[in-house]
Design a protein around this nucleic acid. Sequence first.
DNA 1: CGCGAGTGTCGTGGGCCCATCATAGGAATG
DNA 2: CATTCCTATGATGGGCCCACGACACTCGCG
Lengths: 362, 362
Amino acid sequence: MSRAETSRRGSRPSRAGIRDVAAAAGVSITTVSDALNGKGRLPDATRRHVREVADRLGYRPSAAARTLRTGKSGLIGLTVTTYGDEPFTFTEFAYFAEMARAATSAALARGYALVILPATSRHDVWSNVALDGTVVIDPSDQDPVVSELVRQGLPVVSDGRPAGSLPVTAWVDNDHEAAVMGILDHLADAGARRIGLLTGTTTDTYTHLSTTAYLRWCERVGQDPVYEAYPAHDPCAGAVAADRLLARPDRPDAVYGLFDPNGTDLLAAARRYGLRVPDDLLLVCCSESTVYANTEPPITTLSLKPRRIGTAVVQLLIDAIEGVDSDQPVEQVIPTELIVRTSSQRRPPRTTVSPPRSPEDR
Amino acid sequence: MSRAETSRRGSRPSRAGIRDVAAAAGVSITTVSDALNGKGRLPDATRRHVREVADRLGYRPSAAARTLRTGKSGLIGLTVTTYGDEPFTFTEFAYFAEMARAATSAALARGYALVILPATSRHDVWSNVALDGTVVIDPSDQDPVVSELVRQGLPVVSDGRPAGSLPVTAWVDNDHEAAVMGILDHLADAGARRIGLLTGTTTDTYTHLSTTAYLRWCERVGQDPVYEAYPAHDPCAGAVAADRLLARPDRPDAVYGLFDPNGTDLLAAARRYGLRVPDDLLLVCCSESTVYANTEPPITTLSLKPRRIGTAVVQLLIDAIEGVDSDQPVEQVIPTELIVRTSSQRRPPRTTVSPPRSPEDR
DNA sequence: CGCGAGTGTCGTGGGCCCATCATAGGAATG
DNA sequence: CATTCCTATGATGGGCCCACGACACTCGCG
């Protein structure tokens, strides 16, 4: 009867379109659109009727068409640049898993979905997906991916203070200097005389800021720096570096490890040299892994609160996408948390309970 | 001059379109499309020229428009149904992290990107993203999400044998019965007289098949079943159930735990009861976590090979999307791997090395 | 009482987003 | 004149939104 009915030629295995709904409901396309989207001024009767017909036909609006028309896809990119070519390092570092999980939840809660994309700009994938914005974890200086995205006018929020003058829309990070200072003070309070550092050779800001803070602290208290650096993406290199650190003539009596597996590696190395923890060696490492609550002895860890970071990053990004001028500053600093366990206390504490983890605040 | 030049009105802060490239290169829109997509028969000179101009203008084809026209978005959904409302349980179970990572890599390698979606059908998100197909992990019987997707004609591949007559396009799974049987035989060989099981109360196929296999094995060898079940999504319940199992009057002298954290929980429970592992109690659990290589003692684990599963699932899905009639069957069974460590051997083995992990085969 | 202007409600038409593809058209060559 | 080659035209995909149109009803004034 109507044009919609006849213009579709032949068989129709495809899904019902807005046209079909309009024809079946006896109204115009616009009315269908308005009725389903809650826009326009329509009597409730019409609205209900259209919705019924749409349901009956199993109508689902085409996401592609809507995206094309509105310019919004409801998709957010997530990309991890750090440590090598693998698309992301979920397994190696619990931090990424937690952060990605929180980011996904936060995005979904606001009606967006998260797309995981490779750091290495395989252009075909990046340009095949319509993004409203992107979260970049640890962007390197002059990151080409970021530049390209910004050039296209897309908002970019980074996890990690951007190096140089990378033009990100907003960023979220911990205060790594303060965290390192706090740990070193904590170890010194526990009786450490010479504190060593296990650090990385990579050039990301986390490694850089932490190492610098360590060196400054040493200068302030008048201690000679004792540290070993290794390529953080190589799990075996970590064990070797831990061993080297404890084999030095100026062996430290306390060590802070910047990366997740350092705790286990340092513990193993200590065993090899017959060092007791915490009696002969105090240990702290930066990790989100719950493993360290059950090691022998339990190891004190620094948590960077990846859940809060993941949530914050996504909130900032969506605010930027939707043009919400939030009161939040575009630079957000998330506090770290030192979870003190046996490994960093000379005298065993009265109770070794770690703070209870509430689902959100972590 | 051309229509493209004049039809755009006013200022143009937006990205360059194919029109602009055509105008700038002095050719038609079709020629631009063909030149960039490698289609049609064009002289190389034209092709190069168009590409140059496109680069100069920073032209990126609109993903939304392409999707609308071609009907392909290059996007694959990944959804986890198991264990509660949280969008996915990355952290709790290393299995998911590994599997998702492998799936992401495999998708990217074939030019697709992965979108993580919630199992609970928040319709607004699902219908806002144009998917070419979906991977469903552990679909429950009569899963509404799966039904809806299939109704729309989208291919769905599941990780885990679908229960009932769920109409998935293909599925990948381990042979859980064989795996459990193998472990029980392994424990019996090591001298176990009464083998207990730590299982779940959930109704997913993994739990169901594994438990059934255990009961059948018991029947075959004439042992009374000794098992405790708990809701797998609750980490605390696991510790309690482990304790209950070892507190029973008919205490088992060997236990297999179906879930990732069971190893740690059982080890802790054993300590509380003064049981030595492996002397008084043999232990195996199903886990992808590397922590069990370093526990005291190291614990034998069953690996379900999540990387291979994640890869296989995505390959099958993309084959279905692209209409490739692969030689592969639509039902793929991935072999499991038992990583034997100290906890399941009465006499300490001569060497306790676990097999070296190659990057892909895991 | 009659008629046009004024006000409001409800709905419709057609353009638009942008790239792709089938087909028709034109130029050059044998 | 026929045959290659190459390029242009126009339709298409599906939903959203601006700008109106149809219609009903009220009010004011002659």
